[in-house]
Design a protein around this nucleic acid. Structure first.
Lengths: 123, 123
DNA sequence: ATAAACTATAAAGTATACTTGAATGTCAAA
DNA sequence: TTTGACATTCAAGTATACTTTATAGTTTAT
């Protein structure tokens, strides 16, 4: 499919998708070139980009995402090192989750305060 | 306390703390100037900066954090609008948490694969 | 008293993740 | 066939969140 179709399926913009490719987040499995030099995306590209979006929204940088993706493929790292890497990432996510929960409870307290005030005013 | 002491208590660097002040994340409650023009931080500044760190680690920008802080003070916004604001932020955090959990389960699957491989190799 | 350590400001530089602009090429429909 | 929509590259611009550099004033220790 052409880039425009992919933008509709992913919600990303053409320059963003090209940028990701330039940064090495897409490969032969996701894009090829046609005779006219236009990019031709596979169906896999859709899933792949949506995955990138999710992981990115979870707070990872493109660099980290690339490392994770590469790792997914890779027997470049040996097994034990790959496991170490993934466990480190898991811990990072746990930490982020805790921080998120703490912030959330802060907001919850603020919200409770406001709601109490509202109650008072209405009584 | 002087800026150096605050850096030790927060783990932030002097220019970062000054930058936060410039960006309006600190006010009279947190900093004052002495006769020599040196900044003099209150104990409140410590808690405040650590809070900023946590909320930031949860994925919020300084601008958003500032908005939340301002709101915490503020009867600038009327009550109902404040509540709306906080509820919106809560939803954002829920979404972020879900994305984090999805990414985490992705990593968990990858990790499970690696561990299975490891098992196999050892048998 | 003077060097070392700390403080200040202002401006420029850096990294990340894009977005925008300029110039050009390709294709599909009227 | 020519106009409009879409594609390409490359370079420059933007926003966020700092960090670094340069210059200068202040305080502390010896």
């Amino acid at each position: 499919m052409k880039i425009h179709v992919l933008t509709q399926k992913t919600g990303l913009q053409p320059p963003t998708i090209r940028y990701y490719e330039k940064e090495g987040l897409l490969d032969r499995r996701h894009v090829e070139r046609r005779d006219n030099n236009y990019r031709d995306y596979t169906e896999d590209a859709v899933e792949h980009l949506l995955l990138i979006k999710r992981v990115q929204a979870a707070g990872f940088t493109l660099k980290e995402i690339k490392a994770i993706m590469k790792e997914e493929e890779g027997n470049k790292l040996e097994l034990s090192r790959a496991i170490e890497f993934l466990q480190k990432k898991m811990k990072e996510m746990d930490r982020r989750k805790r921080e998120l929960e703490q912030s959330q409870s802060l907001l919850a307290r603020m919200l409770a305060n406001k709601l109490a005030l509202l109650e008072k005013n209405e009584t």
